[in-house]
Computed example of a mutant assay.
Amino acid sequence: MRHVYISSFLLLSALLMAGESFSHDDSPILEGPYLGQNPPGLEPEVFAPGIVSIASWGDAGRFSPDMDEFHVLRWGRENNQRVTESVTFKRMDNRWHEVAVPGRDGVPFFSPDGKTLHFGKRYKERTKDGWSEMKSLGSPYEEIRIMSLTASENGTYVFDEVGTGGDGIIRYSRLVDGKREEPKPFGKEINTGTWNAHPFIAPDESYIMWDGDRENGYGSSDLYISFRKPDGSWGEAINLGDKVNTDAEEGGPQITPDGKYLFFNRVVTRKSGATDSDLYWVDARIIEGLRPRQ
């Protein structure tokens, strides 16, 4: 796939001044929300096949809070070396335009207010001119091997850790009276099984989702959810069920900023026998069907 290596600011400025659209000659025209894709129902579907989810590459992606950007990371192997490719789809005048982002090795997590981009233990802040230079969360986060960090509207961090021998756990850190608490591990409701990773906390902190490997799962890793109880504690982990989880590996759950769809990754095996990862989406009502009745 061909990309134009140009900064987002210069691209958008050029389009606005020229009053013309930007697209690849060999790419379909994408118009409307969700990159022009028809939304799924309660059965998961591959998201934007051939556009975001590309055969022979692993793919992950996330919308910005205003739903006008979709950030993608692709990974694969060339000459026995891991290679990555980052692109961003931007919507202007209801049409999506693809822009390559050289040097970015990861999909940022936007804070719910859109003012911070989190890259694990690092982050960028929105400025009047765009985004700041990359900053560090500092100690103790620098000492933790974080893969994914998400944040709630109240500023609570929820993040994972690459463990020794795969025994990773999920931690949280609250913002109380403007001061950040020391990270603490969640209880056994969440940190149970062989490992747990790639958490997502709902903006209102009403639930947490993640992927993990447990004896009662469908495959090597499944998606789980824990709902917050009225007393503030966390409920037992609930497997998202066989509509989402399979005997393959599922991971990286997230909800779109409008709250309508669940995105996640699934390892797939191609006809050639090679494996990679596709991005799937499904109606978020599937989550409400799992919520315990009080």
Results as ranks from 00 to 15, higher is better:
176 V>M: 01
202 A>N: 00
278 D>E: 11
207 Y>W: 06
288 E>I: 06
96 W>N: 14
143 E>G: 03
207 Y>T: 00
261 Y>Q: 01
181 E>A: 13
77 R>S: 13
149 L>P: 04
238 I>K: 06
65 P>Q: 13
141 Y>C: 05
206 S>A: 04
121 K>T: 08
178 G>Q: 01
239 N>G: 10
196 N>M: 10
183 P>E: 06
283 D>G: 07
34 Y>W: 10
170 I>C: 07
213 D>R: 11
199 P>Q: 14
23 S>C: 09
64 S>C: 08
36 G>E: 02
274 A>N: 14
103 G>T: 03
254 Q>Y: 12
28 P>D: 03
107 V>F: 06
127 T>G: 12
229 K>A: 12
49 P>A: 12
131 W>A: 00
227 F>V: 09
68 D>M: 15
81 Q>R: 15
42 L>C: 02
65 P>Y: 12
123 Y>D: 01
288 E>K: 14
209 M>N: 08
283 D>S: 13
136 S>T: 02
22 F>E: 02
173 S>D: 05
145 R>P: 10
38 N>Q: 15
187 G>K: 12
153 E>T: 02
234 W>T: 09
101 V>L: 12
159 F>N: 04
196 N>Y: 13
202 A>K: 00
163 G>N: 04
166 G>Y: 03
110 F>V: 06
215 E>G: 07
133 E>W: 08
68 D>G: 12
161 E>L: 05
170 I>T: 01
188 K>E: 13
1 M>A: 09
55 A>P: 12
227 F>T: 10
129 D>M: 09
197 A>N: 13
260 K>D: 12
20 E>K: 14
22 F>K: 03
136 S>P: 01
